[in-house]
């Protein structure tokens, strides 16, 4: 997988024989950045994403005894996050924020890609419906297989493949429209 983050947490190190505290620290160090980004793309709100991550880890701490297989640590954590989001969404009927509001954070860990291309991609991604965006984010950002995505979202693998196909197709269409719009603007200016 190109993002190389599928096994950011060493499967052996999260395994049995370690204390609850050590396992938790490994989950935090190895997966928090990916989890935060996933949380952001699920709710598209920085403040809520932070809340979601904190709540996810709190629940993970309580349930860490049930994590037996180190290979599934990441999907386990993302599943908790997805469920927590659904719970919060049901409770609060959260208002979504436009993706354009993402900006530089004071003291942020990594530089934020402010290029036009990245902006256009983010806008296209935000335009997708939740059903299509979710599996695409899990595959591209999370590095999950279709089976793992199916597990996180609680749907079948074939449904995941259909959604991923449509998500990429829609992204292509949206970006083609954007390119056409850009060309029109250039022609008018000329």
């Amino acid at each position: 997988m190109f993002n190389g983050k599928k096994f950011t947490v060493d499967p052996v190190s999260v395994g049995m024989g370690r204390s609850k505290r050590e396992k938790f620290e490994l989950l935090l160090e190895g997966l928090m950045d990916d989890l935060y980004r996933y949380a952001y793309w699920v709710c598209r709100d920085r403040v809520q994403a932070e809340e979601l991550v904190q709540e996810t880890y709190l629940r993970a701490w309580k349930a860490i005894g049930s994590l037996r297989d180190a290979d599934s640590a990441k999907s386990w954590l993302f599943t908790i996050c997805r469920r927590e989001y659904a719970r919060q969404f049901e409770r609060k009927r959260l208002q979504m924020q436009d993706v354009e509001d993402i900006g530089e954070l004071p003291g942020a860990k990594v530089a934020f890609d402010t290029s036009t291309e990245a902006f256009v991609l983010r806008r296209a991604l935000a335009t997708l419906s939740d059903d299509y965006r979710d599996p695409l984010v899990l595959q591209v950002l999370g590095g999950f297989s279709c089976e793992e995505i199916a597990g996180v979202l609680g749907i079948s693998s074939s449904a995941v493949m259909t959604r991923l196909f449509r998500a990429r197709k829609q992204m292509r269409e949206l970006l083609t429209d954007d390119e056409s719009d850009s060309r029109c603007v250039t022609e008018v200016r000329a």
């Binding site: 950045d33 530089e104 942020a108 991609l121």
Partner: peptide, 16 residues
């Protein structure tokens, strides 16, 4: 996908 991944890299709060 690589470009999309780069675009998805929203900044993570340092103190999170």
């Amino acid at each position: 996908d690589k470009k999309l991944l780069d675009a998805m890299q929203v900044p993570v709060p340092e103190d999170l």
